[in-house]
Design a protein around this nucleic acid. Structure first.
Length: 1063
RNA sequence: GGGCCAAUAGCUCAGUCAGGUUGAGCGCUCGGCUGAUAACCGGGAGGCCCGCGGUUCAAAUCCGCGUUGGCCCA
């Protein structure tokens, strides 16, 4: 116990605990201790291995770690396998950057296999770094065996699932409108598209009508989609106008929506116009027009149905009210085109260049061709107006390249076919907070489109789809989907070793399968990386390779992620779980928030407001950071990171440290072992009983909080208990008992109580602050290898006494008021007061104080305590009412006022009963009416009062007033001065660094004779309190002059010779 | 453009579901305590509860419309 540091130094504690954990395999011990407990299947949402830990991931892993530690202590065998998401475009893009690549061509030239190797080693390097990061914040997970999405077993889990999805009839190949990143040359999912403001062309184009005079006017920001225009959409309900517009003497007939007419004509710089006709949108349907770029793009399908007006629900009265529609370049256009049975024309390649189908524009990058297209339209007289506009536009989430919308052939999981099942399965999961599921997640799932799972890339899990070699566009029933490596080995042409095969590209690419005379080859695509993590619940268990664990554990009991995962992992798992197995793969979800900067803004490089976990740990330590993060709302609310808040948390833990350290030296002196503490040994006082009861209440509160995974409530309840109840009240009330030299039942009771409180508090906080609690546990007990293998404390009703808790709550409110009154009376706590009166009209309050009167008297340092319903010594003093006195007495009013002011009621009361009150001035009597004087009740001289307030059993407020009599007697002065002297001697002892029990020689010279007499009178008390063996005028190891209440007191102390030091 | 969440003391947050005198911690300031002492405790100052409407005897709380921030979607 000697090596417990005076000051809570997180870095020292954490370093020593870390070394201890390593040396004693504490993590393994904790796991082993609960190996036979019922299982708890936690699944780690795999972080992506493209970067290092930031504050948000630190929060996430800390929360998971706290829950895992708690669950373990609560008696579960917890699955704690961490995971890493290691495939995907983001890593490819980083590696491309490292290698200086610009396009897929560079990759092909470098060699696919070499490139994939680079991606793999990049992901592995990052993973190892992240292992260290997560371990560095104390996350106890199975770092020796994380699941990695690149491992053959894990990849197999996706194949297996996808095969199930196919068997369920939910795999489909088809043309869809997709987002294409022209740089990465792959389709990207809707949720991989990020939106930003860009400047684009803004053009108004005339589409000349075929069968009548005039033109339709459309507006677009993507001139490059006009070559693929196939129809114009109108709102059937909207009113359209035929407008004869005149410019430079020429008149054009233009068709636009009525609300848009004026704007369009202004844009077209027409001088004048006349409305020739009004029509509904429905009237326009079926009208044919000539494609304005028919000459330039001869391949644009000129079939039955194209080049016409149709109604569509995506039309708004915006710009022109007529919408240029190109099914090959937009999702809504695509859907409507499909309904109408129109062909899909998308003359753009994956790299964003026009194909040969685009005629004169072939080979040009689409956005580079905008100007030519505009010029061609202008030359042909179809350009009504041309300018620019800023608007939101999608870009690739990884390389920030603006996307192009294309219609290409992709592989889909048709989750829209099972929408109802998805929504039903959501109901099987419990979310914290609830609104995240019922509002946010449900809305998202309702709107979710089919899942495009194919990516035309390299670093990913290859699609396990084989298609007939002579049928590149097969129906779903004509494809083969392989579910396992074993199956691949069985069905493949040629030899495949299931143990050795690397499922990555390019090694799987050449594998063919021949069945029933048809040879199949693998489609070259890889999976969308969201597929990888979507199978994490069984991937974690090594399924399908390992079936036992799956049968026992699946589905997951709990997952824990931030709110961005509604669209991510929460969704992908629901989608995959439902499509493959018909079930949601997790039972409970904790959705936490984001770590923002102190202004609530996102931390970002560009804002320069990033706080790293490393910096936070360097400045304040791991436990303080963990406790700080955990003390904030864990259910969906964002955190605004504040350095001051972190500092505050550290000082809270410092209080915990002090509470822990305080009894050690006394226990040490008495050879008391806190590990053997028993509440049956010694005598429990009312404060002991109280703090033990509070401990039961706190455990009940903490238990309820953990049930909801409200880690913040659990953490704060314990920390509040430590600071508020243990430090501020219990320790203060118990100090003197520990200071007693002789062994006593009371002291042993105090030791046992504090040892019990510490033991349980340590265990209650262990999940959140693992280092400091381990250090404390090792100091106090250390019997088990680690505190984290012990059982989480539970409520012991035998020590629960709610009535006592209520009474003490009243006592504390009253005590606070007494301190206030003392301050008003100018009497510091060290000086006793003759009496304290508690006045309350509430019987419950009086009973509470009565029941604890002795304790109360001690705490407020009062010689006597009285509890009364009303304090009968209050003095009513007069306030003259000048509004009445003035008019009544005229010139004498000022003197009357002075005579009335502050007089006691009985002194003012007229003795003849003629009038209520009277005063006499220079022998002349002035009668006063009741209206002329008001009274206020005041305590008598030397008594100060202060109000207090408490809540009663029904939660209503009640209270009263505390009166402190601060009058002095010789006896009180003597004790006051003596205690002032004691206090100074103690400080000097401390300065000399004397042992607590070391005896001294003391000299006291008081400059004032009266005070000197008081001090002399109490020499015994002083000697006892300061362990003074004798008073000696020559004691001078340390001499100091003090000012005690304005009197100079010179004090000297001296060590005794060695043999005399202990009595 | 749409959905969800948040906005309360200088700062971080309770209180909002179930309407009934806005609380705590930190900071500031004044004081106290003292062998937990580079620790600890008390008093005080400090609030148009984001704004505007509405419901109600009564709104921080319920409803509507906005503003700002966060997340998600288009």
């Amino acid at each position: 116990m000697d090596d417990v540091s005076d000051q809570y130094a997180p870095e020292d504690v954490e370093a020593s605990v870390n070394a201890y954990w390593d040396e004693h395999d504490a993590y393994e011990a904790a796991k082993e201790a609960h190996a036979d407990d019922p299982p708890f299947f936690f699944v780690d949402g795999p972080p992506y291995t493209s970067g290092q830990m930031h504050l948000g991931t630190a929060w996430n892993k800390t929360l998971k770690d706290a829950i895992i530690r708690y669950k373990r202590m609560a008696g579960y065998d917890v699955t704690d396998r961490p995971g890493y998401d290691m495939h995907g475009l983001p890593i490819e893009v980083k590696v491309e950057e490292e290698l200086g690549f610009d396009s897929k061509k560079d990759i092909e030239e470098y060699g696919m296999e070499a490139f994939i190797e680079e991606c793999k080693s990049f992901a592995e390097r990052n993973r190892e770094k992240m292992d260290e990061d997560f371990e560095s914040i104390g996350a106890w997970m199975d770092w020796d065996d994380p699941y990695r999405t690149v491992s053959p077993e894990y990849m197999e889990a996706t194949w297996w699932a996808f095969k199930r999805v196919h068997e369920n009839g939910l795999v489909e190949r088809g043309k869809r409108a997709i987002n294409q990143c022209p740089r990465c040359e792959t389709a990207i999912a809707d949720n991989e598209v990020e939106y930003h403001e860009i400047e684009s062309p803004s053009i108004y184009v005339r589409f000349p009508l075929s069968d009548r005079e005039g033109s339709l006017v459309v507006w677009t920001t993507t001139p490059w989609t006009i070559p693929a225009n196939e129809f114009v959409a109108v709102d059937a309900e909207m009113t359209y106008q035929a407008v004869d517009a005149t410019r430079d003497g020429e008149t054009d007939r233009l068709y636009v929506a009525e609300p848009c007419a004026e704007d369009v004509l202004r844009e077209g710089r027409y001088d004048d116009y006349e409305v020739a006709e009004e029509l509904s949108g429905a009237d326009l349907v079926g009208w044919a027009y000539d494609h304005p770029l028919a000459d330039e793009v001869p391949d644009n399908p000129d079939t039955e149905g194209t080049g016409q007006v149709y109604a569509a629900d995506y039309v708004e009265a915006d710009r022109t009210g007529l919408v240029h529609s190109a099914p090959g370049h937009g999702e809504v256009d695509f859907e409507r085109g499909r309904e109408l049975g129109l062909p899909v024309f998308s003359p753009v390649a994956g790299d964003g260049t026009f194909t040969d189908e685009a005629g004169t524009y072939a080979g040009r990058f689409v956005r580079d061709a905008n100007d030519d297209i505009i010029a061609d339209l202008d030359a042909k007289g179809y350009l009504l107006a041309s300018g620019t506009t800023t608007h939101r536009y999608g870009q690739c989430w990884r390389c920030d390249t603006d996307i192009v919308y294309l219609a290409t052939d992709q592989w889909f999981i048709t989750v829209t076919d099972i929408k109802n099942e998805l929504l039903e399965n959501i109901e099987d999961s419990e979310w914290h907070p609830e609104w995240a599921r019922d509002n946010r997640f449900k809305n998202f799932v309702e709107d979710a489109p089919d899942w495009n799972v194919s990516r035309q890339r390299y670093w990913g899990i290859p699609l396990p789809i084989w298609v007939p070699e002579d049928d590149p566009d097969p129906d779903a029933e004509d494809i083969l989907v392989v579910g396992t490596r074993e199956e691949l080995a069985e069905r493949a042409d040629g030899n495949v070793d299931p143990e050795a095969v690397d499922l990555h590209r390019p090694s799987v690419d050449p594998i063919t399968i021949t069945e029933d005379g048809v040879t199949y080859e693998r489609v070259p695509d890889v999976f969308d990386v969201w597929i990888d993590s979507s199978v994490a619940t069984w991937g974690t268990l090594g399924y399908p390779g390992n079936e036992d664990a799956f049968d026992e554990l699946w589905p997951a009991d709990l997952i824990v992620e931030a709110h961005d995962q509604t669209r991510g992992w929460f969704w992908s798992q629901l989608g995959m779980g439902t499509a493959a197995l018909g079930e949601i793969p997790y039972d409970e979800v904790v959705m936490h928030g984001f770590a923002n900067d102190s202004d609530g803004r996102k931390m970002s490089k560009s804002l320069g407001n990033i706080v790293t976990p490393e910096e936070a740990i360097d400045r304040y330590g791991r436990d303080p950071l963990r406790a700080y993060l955990m003390s904030h709302d864990q259910h969906g609310a964002d955190l605004s990171f504040e350095w001051e808040g972190l500092a505050e948390t550290q000082s809270t833990l410092n209080i915990f440290w002090n509470v822990f350290r305080f009894p050690l030296q006394y226990m040490d002196l008495d050879d008391y072992d806190p590990a053997d503490a028993s509440l049956d040994d010694g005598e429990l006082t009312v404060v002991d009983e109280w703090v033990l009861s509070r401990l039961q209440s706190v455990k009940a509160e903490v238990d309820a909080a953990w049930d909801e995974y409200a880690v913040h409530d659990a953490c704060n309840a314990v920390l509040d208990f430590v600071t508020e109840d243990v430090s501020r009240f219990y320790v203060k009330a118990t100090r003197e008992r520990m200071w007693e030299e002789a062994d006593s039942a009371s002291k042993r009771g105090a030791y046992a109580t504090l040892a019990t409180v510490l033991d349980e508090t340590i265990r209650l906080l262990a999940p959140v602050t693992p280092y400091i609690t381990e250090e404390m546990y090792r100091t106090l007990d250390g019997d088990a290898t680690t505190v984290h293998q012990l059982a989480y404390p539970t409520v012991d009703e035998a020590y629960h006494d709610p009535e006592l808790e209520r009474n003490v709550a009243v006592l504390r409110a009253v005590e606070e008021a007494a301190a206030n009154a003392r301050q008003q009376g100018g009497r510091k706590l060290r000086w006793p007061v003759p009496r304290v009166l508690v006045e309350s009209d509430d019987g419950g309050v009086r009973e509470a104080v009565d029941s604890l009167a002795d304790l109360f008297g001690e705490r407020v340092n009062a010689r006597s305590v009285a509890v009364v319903e009303s304090f009968d010594e209050l003095v009513e003093r007069a306030d003259p009412e000048m509004g009445v006195i003035g008019p009544a007495f005229g010139g004498d009013a000022q003197e009357v006022m002075a005579a009335v002011e502050d007089r006691r009621r009985e002194d003012l009361t007229a003795d003849d009963g003629e009038t209520p009150y009277a005063v006499t001035l220079d022998g002349e009597r002035y009668d006063l009416t009741a209206e002329m004087v008001s009274f206020r009740a005041e305590p008598p001289a030397d008594v100060a009062g202060a109000d207090f307030e408490v809540s009663d059993d029904d939660g209503d407020r009640t209270g009263g007033t505390v009166y402190v009599d601060t009058s002095l007697t010789d006896d009180i002065e003597a004790e006051g001065y003596a205690r002032d002297v004691v206090r100074r001697i103690q400080e000097m002892r401390k300065r000399l660094e004397l042992d607590v029990d070391e005896r001294i020689r003391t000299r006291i010279d008081v400059a004032d004779d009266r005070v000197a007499a008081f001090v002399d009178e109490r020499r015994d008390l002083i000697a006892e309190e300061t362990r003074t063996a004798e008073f000696d005028a020559d004691a001078d190891d340390l001499t100091e002059e003090w000012d005690v209440e304005g009197v100079a007191v010179t004090i000297g102390i001296e060590r005794l010779e060695a043999e005399q030091r202990t009595a």
